[in-house]
Design a protein around this nucleic acid. Structure first.
Lengths: 343, 343
DNA sequence: CTGAAAGCGCTTACAG
DNA sequence: CTGAAAGCGCTTACAG
């Protein structure tokens, strides 16, 4: 492996000048730049990142913290983020944590150990950010929760417009004539360490607003069941909800995984989807396109979320910019899981 | 942030001795060890990994290369691997590459840039290893393809017994009375840069052996269709296969994603699963448990594959051991997607 | 068992 | 515009 010493010796310049060329500093003569760049190419020289990090006491990597390893939508988001980072010639490391772990606490530790130059959070609850994010001083992005209310100038956030999207999903059920609609998943209000700006809460909010606007009665105690973001969670909570409230004719699940588990539960209870009960999901994961019946859902734009987030982070790493908070458009996708209520 | 200098100053020992304590060297007095460890704890000292890497010219990270971002089974494997690595206090970075990319070429580059102390490959074709793995000199593990024939002493491999598992899956179809069985996915023989030891080829082999043993005729041109590892791939190739060969009564898909896409395609063609056509998958992903109908499949033990692979890698990083090649047990899981052929 | 010192490969004031 | 030199925080022969 060639080092900066070799390049200096071969090119006839000092290592200082070589370093300046490598780092694209302006104060180098065109002549020196040309010659040194040629040698760099010839020798296939790659700067030693450890030495660089040691000197600058910051790594050249970006750390990604994924909260909720079972969440299929986050996986597609992660894929998009990784690809965008690589396409920009940057390197990322990933930390997977459980849905119950504290992503900010993990990030603080990662920051100490790996010294990333930027952080990306996939999934997360604004509560943890509120409490501990002040310990983090590198540019960061939170994807899938709105951090605008938190007031950190090094934290951007990109998210689907959860309130409107959920309202749209419920609106589809209402327009089919449903008046007895159940909700699966999410957290109403300030429960369980969640905050009103987290997407589970936002989706509930959008759904409730739409119901109210349509003059449809809804009772959280009776028509709603909390659920983890998984098919397994959806299966069990759907069963529980429908045993308690058998007159429901439609379900809004705040994630496709939950919806798919719910559809399977209904089937096992002897109910047909959509003839006996309609289901709408949220996310637009692959499984929703191939399920039987095909799931009607809100399609989030994972690619756009990923690309915008990475681009914003890279800009803020290199230049002085303020954090932004942006809502990404969604699409309602028809499926086979919604029909008019019986009789 | 405390440095080794601070610990030396506070404890009254030299930085050499502190370094020896941190690295658990034997040649330190109990007294010195006790005192220094106390100061380390008090100061919450974390060695600077960049300095360490620079000095030792090797990173303390493990790099994971995932080939086939769309492959759901690899995602669950990745999850298991990550968790096992973290549970052992180690740090991993992940590189996602496309199914068509060369995982060994990427690894060579990663090795140069990140200098990981070990490599884990999720998915991969032995062809690329055969050609270029000699350039890689750190302990490595290949998961989901058998590398025993390659003869690299720094490359272990862990894989499900694909031949027997595929034979078992097809055997279930045969025992139900099926004689016209189609196969979806995989590569027979040496096609497309695949090698006979790669799992797609092994699964085909097991299936063909079982068919032959049962005296069932099979024509690759007529009864088989190649498919990418995805629901989308399964959807299109299943349709193509059945339009060409409509007398098939059962399908063996070499992955659950393919099987799920196939079931959806059959439904859209007006066929019922399993009444009109039976389907068996391979992998045991979550979606298979919640699909309608539930998919009969081979359940691979992702957790055991992940744990054994990580444990083996960590042992070989720390100690002089030879690489191993191990087959992990599988389970056949009954579903609702298999029935006897009609009439 | 311990300390003093070299050196890993860089970046960056400082001088000219 | 360029070079010489300090120093980032460690590890590891070397000497005692």
């Amino acid at each position: 492996m060639a080092t900066i010493q070799d390049i200096a010796r071969i090119s006839g310049y000092s290592i200082g000048t070589v370093s300046r060329v490598i780092n694209n500093r302006a104060d180098v003569s065109a002549e020196a730049r040309r010659k040194i760049e040629e040698v760099v190419r010839e020798q296939n020289y790659q700067p030693n990142s450890s030495a660089r990090m040691l000197r600058q006491s910051i790594s050249s990597e970006i750390s990604i913290v994924v909260r909720g390893v079972r969440n299929v939508f986050l996986q597609s988001l992660l894929e998009g983020v990784q690809i965008r980072i690589r396409d920009n010639g940057e390197i990322a490391n990933v930390q997977f944590i459980r849905e119950t772990d504290d992503e900010v606490a993990v990030a603080v530790q990662v920051l100490q150990n790996l010294k990333p130059k930027g952080l990306i959070f996939l999934g997360g609850s604004t509560k943890n950010f509120q409490e501990d994010f002040s310990k983090i001083n590198v540019p960061s992005v939170l994807i899938s929760a709105d951090a605008s209310g938190l007031g950190f100038d090094n934290l951007s956030s990109f998210t689907t417009d959860d309130v409107n999207a959920a309202a749209r999903a419920v609106g589809e059920l209402v327009s089919q004539g449903h008046r007895r609609i159940g909700i699966l998943g999410g957290y109403p209000g300030d429960a369980e360490g969640m905050r009103p700006n987290d997407s589970p809460a936002q989706r509930i909010r959008g759904a409730l607003e739409e119901l109210e606007k349509s003059g449809i009665a809804f009772d959280l105690e009776r028509d709603y069941e909390e659920s983890p973001f998984s098919a397994e969670g959806g299966y069990h909570t759907a069963e529980k909800l429908l045993l308690r409230t058998p007159d429901l004719t439609a379900i809004f699940a705040i994630s496709d995984s939950i919806a798919i588990g719910a559809m399977r539960a209904f089937r096992d209870m002897g109910l047909r989807v959509p003839e006996d009960i309609s289901v709408v999901g949220f996310d637009g994961i692959t499984a929703a396109k191939y399920s039987v019946p095909r799931l009607a859902t809100i399609q989030q734009d994972a690619t756009l979320l990923a690309n915008k987030s990475v681009d914003d982070l890279l800009m803020r790493i290199s230049y002085e910019r303020t954090a932004v908070h942006e809502k990404i458009p969604y699409l309602y996708v028809n499926g086979e899981s919604v029909a008019q209520p019986r009789e």
